[in-house]
Amino acid sequence: MADTLKQRPEFRNINALSDLPHYRLPPAGIVSILHRISGLLMFFLLPLVIWLFDTSVSSEVSFESFRAAFVSGIGFVPAVLVKLVTLALIWAYLHHLMAGVRHVRMDISHTVSKEQGRQSALVVLAASVTLTVLLGAKLFGLY
């Protein structure tokens, strides 16, 4: 019986060079790590968000400077970099929101199986990437 079961490797003392390339993180672990990364990204980009919001609602002149940031850039920063940072912020917000809703849903139900956790993690990953691609296409003017 014991030899019919697939032997799984044990990772006790992890060597970064030999063990980590073979370690496969489950989707729930990936979503958890990305949830933390997206939270940090939103925290560090908060001054940019406040500046963007302030310039977009202060006056018509400041709104034009807001629009110009996405057309010609901000000072020495090119417009494509402004758009890429904004796209990263869009992804961070969407992923953090969806993963947060996933965690709250799991906390409320208290009956989460390993398969339910895997499926909800895959839904979060697929939905956040799909919505980011759609909004990124709009941001870069593809539609």
Rank of each mutant, 00 (worst) to 15 (best):
M1W: 06
L125K: 14
I90M: 12
I90K: 04
M98Y: 13
Y93V: 07
R102T: 11
S72G: 15
P21A: 08
R24L: 11
L41E: 08
L94V: 06
E10S: 09
L142F: 05
A88E: 06
L17E: 14
L131M: 10
V71E: 15
E115S: 09
V61I: 07
F44E: 04
D54C: 12
L125R: 11
M1V: 07
V112N: 08
V112C: 02
R8E: 11
M1Y: 09
F11M: 03
P21W: 04
H95M: 01
V129C: 12
P78W: 04
V82G: 05
R105W: 12
L20N: 09
I90V: 14
Y23H: 14
A137K: 09
K83H: 05
E60M: 05
K138E: 05
Q7N: 13
A69N: 14
M1E: 11
S18W: 07
A137I: 02
A79M: 08
M1S: 13
K114M: 01
F63P: 02
A92S: 15
G136M: 04
G117K: 09
N13S: 10
L45A: 05
D19L: 02
S59C: 06
I90P: 00
A99T: 13
K6D: 09
A69Q: 13
Y23N: 11
V31L: 00
F70S: 10
Q119R: 15
V133S: 11
L135S: 10
N15I: 02
G73L: 04
H96P: 05
V85R: 03
Y143A: 13
L40W: 07
A92H: 03
N13F: 08
L41C: 07
L25R: 13
L34V: 12
L20C: 06
V57T: 11
P47E: 01
L125G: 15
F63R: 15
A28G: 07
G136N: 06
G136Y: 01
M98H: 14
Q116R: 15
R8F: 07
V104Y: 03
R36P: 00
A127P: 03
D107E: 08
K83T: 07
V49M: 12
V124E: 03
F44D: 04
T4A: 15
L139C: 00
V124S: 05
L97M: 15
A2R: 15
A92R: 00
R67H: 12
T55I: 12
S56W: 02
F66W: 14
Q119F: 09
G117D: 10
H22L: 12
S113G: 06
S72D: 15
S56R: 10
M98W: 10
R24D: 14
P78L: 03
